[in-house]
């Protein structure tokens, strides 16, 4: 299907086909899907694709998002240089 070739995670270039295949094979959570494919782990921190990962999981496994955020957020929520994180500007 053509629509499966579409890239979902732009940062890591992960396709919808990759995500569907992984979600089907492992019948996994959004978090496992992220760790297996790297979708959502790129430079933007998953800001662009995180909701789409939840949608893939819902479409494939029927698991709907719940009150707990499925894909955790870790600081820093913006890419920062080691220099800055080390306290120097």
């Amino acid at each position: 299907m053509e629509s499966h070739r579409v890239i979902v995670c732009r940062c890591e270039e992960v396709s919808l086909a990759d995500l569907i295949e992984t979600a089907s094979s492992y019948s996994c959570t959004a978090r496992e899907l992220k760790l297996r494919t790297r979708a959502g782990m790129g430079c933007c921190g998953g800001r662009t694709c995180r909701n789409m990962l939840d949608q893939v999981i819902e479409a494939v496994t029927g698991q709907k998002p719940d009150h707990a955020v499925s894909l955790g957020y870790q600081p820093p929520v913006r890419p920062m240089s080691f220099q800055l994180l080390g306290g120097r500007k």
Partner: peptide
Amino acid sequence: GTPRGMYCNIGHCYE
């Protein structure tokens, strides 16, 4: 190596 440009224009996507 695929070409990229501005996408969100408000600092969210880093493209």
